[in-house]
Amino acid sequence: MANSKINPKKLLKTLLQILVTSAALYLVLRKTDVAKLGSIIRNANPWYLLLSLLFFNISKVINAVRLNRFFKAIGIELSAMYSLKLYYLGMFYNLFLPGGVGGDGYKIYVLQKNHGLKMINVFHAVFWDRVSGIIALIFLSLILLQSSTFATHLPQFVPYAWVVLITIYPLTLLLNKLFYKQFVEVFTITSIESLLIQIAQVISVFFILKALSQNAHMIDYLAIFLISTIATIIPITIGGAGAREITFFYLLGFIQVETHAGVALSLIFFAVSALSSLAGILTKISHETSVPETQKS
């Protein structure tokens, strides 16, 4: 990964991410009472925040297990600890080195360069891991939205939401069978793990809300969190900062709920994510992997 030359495309991407992140945060904070926001964050219960940190990292451990299961499906044998280290390093690259390799790209790079694997095989595993997570996000978002204030504001969309809920996993399985047959055998277990990952993150956010003494509109906040997570998947901001805040600000405003707690929640969640990502600095990637000859490039 050592490269002293500056890549103009990566530099431009980094500058664009910084610009979009700054613009989104400015747009939100310009319409927010910053003093009140700061007071809400300062008075947050630290014990609930520790529980939030715990469940966030539980979600990441499950995520590493799921990704390792996809690797095994294409014949890449990684130890559980190696996979976890690789995942946290990916988190670190994704958050602290924007515009460059990125978390997913870093995983592909390491396995391809250090272990002589076909890049396309690793790409398929990482890509389907991401798709599996997005499907779980959509599924849980729609479940929460059915019981949220949004359902009363937009009742005309409720039937469509139920159609998506009923069909999303059968259609995903069909897509799996048509284009990613190598992952069909692990479809059920990885789908369950994907749901557990998002549930653990929802619990993490629940504890942030408890830390902020925010007990009203709980379902609304949790639903918006899942929607904001979908929004942060598009790598146009640094670690999702700005995208999550602007999603909370405008969706809470749409249902006429006070926005300060939502913005505080999103900022704290980013801090939890950043703190957890720092563990990537402590990891060391070695060559502890076994790959069948058919998987080597």
Results as ranks from 00 to 15, higher is better:
Ile203Lys: 14
Leu178Met: 14
Ser141Asn: 05
Val158Asp: 00
Ile135Ser: 05
Leu78Ala: 04
Ser194Glu: 07
Asn68Met: 07
Ala274Asn: 04
Ser22Val: 08
Val20Ile: 10
Thr229Asn: 05
Val184Pro: 11
Gly99Ile: 02
Ala264Lys: 09
Val61Glu: 06
Leu97Gln: 08
Leu275Glu: 08
Val257Asn: 02
Ile135Arg: 07
Phe225Thr: 07
Ser191Pro: 13
Ala151Val: 03
Ile6His: 14
Ile285Phe: 09
Ile40Cys: 00
Leu51Lys: 02
Leu275Asn: 08
Gly103Val: 04
Val164Arg: 09
Ala264Leu: 09
Leu196Ser: 11
Asn215Trp: 13
His115Ser: 04
Val291Ile: 12
Thr283Ala: 10
Leu16His: 02
Leu140Ile: 05
Leu278Ala: 10
Val65His: 09
Phe207Ser: 01
Val110Gly: 04
Val202Tyr: 09
Leu25Ser: 03
Val28Ser: 01
Tyr160Pro: 02
Gln295Met: 14
Ile246Ala: 09
Phe96Gln: 02
Pro292Phe: 11
Asn57Gly: 05
Ile230Tyr: 13
Asn3Phe: 10
Ser194Asp: 07
Phe179Glu: 05
Leu171Ser: 15
Ser148Arg: 00
Ala271Gln: 06
Trp128Ile: 11
Ile268Leu: 14
His287Ile: 12
Trp47Phe: 13
Gly280Tyr: 03
Met91Ser: 02
Phe207Arg: 03
Ala271Cys: 10
Ile76His: 03
Ile108Ala: 10
Met119Val: 15
Ile236Asn: 08
Ile208Asp: 00
Ser286Met: 12
Leu67Trp: 08
Tyr180His: 14
Ser148Asn: 02
Asn215Phe: 10
Phe55Lys: 04
Phe123Cys: 04
Leu195Glu: 13
Ile219Cys: 11
Leu195Gly: 15
Ala231Met: 09
Thr229Pro: 01
Leu29Thr: 00
Thr190Ile: 06
Ser228Met: 05
Tyr82Pro: 09
Ile236His: 05
Leu275Gln: 07
Leu111Gln: 03
Tyr93Thr: 09
Leu251Phe: 15
Ala200Arg: 06
Val65Phe: 14
His217Asp: 14
Ala64Ser: 14
Trp162Phe: 15
Leu53Gln: 07
Phe56Gln: 04
Val291Thr: 10
Trp162Val: 03
Gln256Thr: 14
Thr237Val: 07
Ile203Ser: 12
Pro292Gln: 11
Pro170Lys: 08
Gly38His: 01
Tyr48Gly: 05
Leu111Gly: 04
Leu19Pro: 02
Asn114Pro: 15
Leu12Met: 13
His153Arg: 15
Ile120Trp: 12
Leu37Gln: 01
Leu226Arg: 01
